[in-house]
Amino acid sequence: MVNLIINPVSKKFKKINCDTTPNTRLSAIIEAYAKKNNVSDPNRIKFSYIPDDEKSKKKITLKNYLTLEENGLDFKQNKEETLHVYAKDVGPQIGWRTVYFIEYLGPMIIHSLFYYLYYDAGKMNYTQILSYNLTLLHYLKREYETLFIHTFSADTMPLSFLFRNSGHYWIINGLFIAFSIYAPSDSYYDVSTTSGQIWKFIHHIEDRSLDELKWFGGAMVIFEICNLYCHILLRRLRSDGSREHKIPYGFAFKFVSFPNYFFEFLSWTVFALMTNNWSSYFFLIVGTGTMMMWAKQKHAKYKKTFGDKYPKNRKAMIPFIF
């Protein structure tokens, strides 16, 4: 038994002393603490602690699904049998799975509205038709992964993140691309005027032959399947129900830590080259830059967590390069 002192960081919380054990799951303590403070959603409460060996005294956030001991709280060396943790109100929360579902639903709705209502679906060329179907296929795959494959280390994220995350998909992929690539062909615009030239640039899309589109479409489908398989392999790492990070092996994980990002990059590269529209390239650049940033951060975390056990020759995202 140990005495746990919960120190409030947020003014609305109370300082509470409680007796507990090292193998008590943190989520149970947070639920009890939430009731004491009349907080209806325990997910908005986060606990942190300062390790005794930390010179900087930087607080480390505790994971709700782990026990106190699994979170690293030192019970053996603490002679006074009293430990301090800090409670913070992180604001309204929303489930990770809910956020992903909403993120990916947006582009499907927006693309469909532009394709069938804003423009005339009956006048689309083959490139526009394939673009719409590949976009729909991509986000249907994403929704399937969200509902049946993905596992999450945390249950919730701040509600404000929903708007930030959705903006990337709803505005750039949804609004920008759908508005640009489903418009009438280039010949519709009067290039003798400045405005006509601008609109022709905005709505330009390659009118490719069926033979060309078979190659583009086939390549994108293959990369989408590879991306899906990477998520399946990651899912298998947590088939026992645990949430801890483990070293992934097999398939493209032999070369990079995040091949799912790599195949996502290849997939949208094919899409951009196929449509040859500014909005597709813009989405590719923004998305790739974001994935490279994530891959670099997570790759460094893998190496820090697993040390010499982590494969040394493995890159972050792009084989042999990055």
Score class of each variant (00 low, 15 high):
S239K: 15
F216K: 11
L234P: 15
K246R: 15
H231L: 14
N260E: 02
Y261S: 07
S239W: 05
S239I: 13
P248V: 09
S195G: 07
Y261A: 03
F201A: 14
S195A: 13
P259Y: 00
G196L: 07
R238Y: 03
N227F: 04
S257D: 02
D207Y: 07
M220I: 12
G196H: 01
Y229W: 14
F253E: 00
A219N: 05
S239H: 07
L210M: 08
Y229C: 14
E206P: 00
G196K: 05
I205W: 00
N227I: 05
P259C: 12
L210P: 01
F262A: 07
D211S: 10
N227M: 08
S195H: 04
I198A: 03
S257M: 11
F216N: 06
C230E: 01
I225L: 10
H204A: 11
G196D: 01
V221N: 03
D207R: 15
R208G: 02
L237A: 04
I225H: 04
N260D: 04
L228C: 12
F223L: 13
G241F: 04
I202P: 01
C230H: 04
S257F: 05
G196T: 05
S242A: 06
R238E: 02
Y249M: 15
H231R: 13
L210T: 08
M220T: 09
E206Q: 14
L237I: 09
L228T: 10
G218F: 04
K254T: 12
Y229Q: 12
K246E: 02
N260R: 10
I225C: 08
P248E: 02
H245W: 11
R238I: 12
F201S: 05
P248H: 02
S195N: 08
F255E: 03
R236V: 07
A219K: 04
G217L: 07
V221H: 08
D211G: 02
C230R: 06
E224K: 14
G218V: 10
S195Q: 10
I202V: 13
R243S: 08
G241P: 15
R208W: 00
R235D: 03
Y249V: 15
E206M: 14
A219I: 09
G250N: 06
H204T: 13
A252D: 00
D207G: 06
L234E: 00
E244W: 09
V256H: 02
F251E: 08
C230K: 07
D240M: 06
R238S: 03
L228D: 01
D211Q: 11
D207Q: 14
H231C: 12
V221E: 00
M220E: 03
G241Y: 05
S209Q: 11
E224V: 13
F253V: 05
E244G: 11
G250V: 08
D240Y: 01
C230L: 09
